[in-house]
Design a protein around this nucleic acid. Structure first.
Length: 453
RNA sequence: GCGCCGGUAGCUCAAUUGGCAGAGCAUUUGACUCUUAAUCAACAGGUUCCGGGUUCAAGUCCCGGCCGGCGCACCA
């Protein structure tokens, strides 16, 4: 902040203005009766210039530790060597750092230390600060753009009697007074649609969901999802909204839609290409395949690629697996993959011209799924049969199949208007914007194994 | 959960085929009136992640465990 105000000061010039500043000592250079300290606050760094003749308790000042917080009063000056400084007259140590913040040149690189003590990592490593700040800007931008588009922000339960809205294993917990097992939500989807039934025509929720699955550079057991629902929209409308939303967010955070991700050019610019799952899978395997290709043939194509095919999979699931095995990683710039099989889309509306497919899309970017959306299934009868099919899969050993949610079916019986829904993985988007290879880098405190022994 | 790789001073990292466990920074002490990772000198700093084993001798080799990174699986 001071840097702009006093940019005019020439080398060795004294401004005559007194400033109060506070921050953390990052570097300290003593030279006899002089001392220079680099102090940092949330806005940047400023040099402190202490002189034995001017600075109170000079002998104590030079004994400050790297990492100590200080409050300083003094005149704003520019040193003979041109560094804008506060010439310390009085100062106070606000807090003492008993541990250092890593090597003052190399910082902290040990992942275990960085993630378990992110506070130290943030002080030691500028890239960590930048990446988490970008995530914050992303979240702000998403909210503002949703509000601007007429969406109302709502909150729905994280403690659920039935974990549903996605294909995933839940975390289980227990409520003592109710004497009931509860599950941490795997998606807010069904609650949000019930709010649309209730008359809130555009709603969104930006919040945490929990899935009991393995960790990887792209997966954290708790992650942040933006889900939004718009009455009277279909999946085409939603695709048009999402590509503008994401491109707009890139403009807000980066000031451009053209960037680099992990050393490779990457563009957020809308519109994004739209290809059907069957088209992409057909190109990848070199022959026409679709949801109507005999299941055994699709299974053979999968098996020849080393994918283990389960007996419960129909042609739809096989097609989706084939797409994932052959196409997913190669999709770099954002692209919409559309027309998902009904078998893998138990909550999505059927396509009119082909009831084995749905009005569903997923966007892919940098080789991974970024968003998922569809025209919602609003027919309670069809929804019940879809749930029953899921229940059959669960009985056959699929522990990620959905359970029948009678309350949700009842809500559909009150009438869900034609509605489109969307989920965006906020952490994944943050990775792209921050140019980070691991999801852990854009989560302040990623899930780690508790220390034992 | 499985596989590969890693864990050495507070931090960043060395240590040849198994042969006295080291450096820089930080800390402590001293010198120094314009430094920018200041510089110079000195002191101190270790259960080499933990527990076993092989060996005259283990940071190094073997077995088990803990934690992490990557890959697979699972998924977004």
């Amino acid at each position: 902040m001071l840097a702009k105000t006093y940019a005019h000061l020439t080398d060795g010039e004294e401004s005559g203005a007194v400033a109060n500043v506070a921050g953390r000592i990052m570097l300290l250079r003593t030279q006899g009766k002089l001392a220079f300290a680099t102090m940092r606050d949330s806005t940047g760094e400023i040099q402190l210039f202490a002189l034995a003749a001017v600075t109170q308790e000079f002998d104590e000042f030079v004994k400050l530790h790297l990492g100590d917080w200080v409050g300083v009063t003094g005149e704003v000056v520019r040193t003979k060597r041109g560094e804008l400084s506060v010439k310390v007259t009085s100062w106070v140590r606000l807090a003492e750092a008993l541990h250092n913040f890593g090597d003052k040149w190399a910082g902290i690189s040990d992942f275990d230390l960085r993630y378990r003590h992110r506070e130290a990592d943030l002080w030691a490593n500028p890239v960590s600060r930048r990446s988490l700040a970008r995530r914050s800007e992303l979240v702000r931008s998403l909210r503002e753009r949703c509000w601007a588009a007429g969406f109302m922000e709502v909150e729905t339960p994280m403690l659920n009697a039935i974990p549903t809205g996605a294909a995933a294993r839940p975390f289980k917990t227990h409520h003592n007074a109710l004497s009931s097992d509860l599950y941490l939500r795997i998606a807010p989807e069904l609650w949000l649609k019930r709010l649309v039934v209730g008359g809130f025509e555009r709603v969104f929720e930006l919040g945490r969901v929990f899935r009991n699955e393995g960790l990887s550079p792209r997966h954290n057991p708790e992650f942040t999802m933006l889900e939004l629902y718009a009455a009277y929209w279909n999946f085409d409308d939603m695709m048009a909204f999402v590509e503008e939303l994401v491109a707009g967010v890139a403009m807000d955070v980066l000031g451009t839609t053209e960037t680099e991700y992990q050393g490779r050019v990457f563009s957020f610019a809308a519109p994004w290409p739209r290809r059907t799952m069957a088209e992409l899978a057909s190109e990848a395997v070199g022959e026409d395949v679709s949801v109507h290709t005999p299941r055994e043939h699709l299974a053979a194509l999968l098996a020849s690629r080393g994918v283990e095919v389960h007996a419960s999979w129909g042609a739809g699931r096989c097609l989706a697996e084939l797409f994932e095995a052959t196409c997913e990683e190669s999709l770099w710039n954002p692209i919409y993959v559309t027309e998902y099989p009904v078998e893998v889309s138990p909550l999505a509306r059927r396509l009119e011209r082909d009831p084995e497919l749905t009005e569903r899309f997923e966007s892919y970017a940098a080789g991974r799924e970024l968003s998922n959306g569809f025209s919602e299934l609003i027919d309670p009868v069809d929804q019940r049969s879809r749930f029953e099919e899921q229940a059959r899969l669960a009985a056959a050993g699929d522990d990620e199949a959905m359970q029948i949610d009678e309350d949700y079916i009842k809500s559909l019986e009150w009438g869900l208007p034609p509605t489109a829904g969307l989920g965006i993985g906020v952490d994944r988007l943050a990775m792209l914007l921050a140019d980070e290879p691991s999801i852990r880098e854009v989560i302040a405190f990623p899930t780690l194994k508790p220390l034992r022994d």
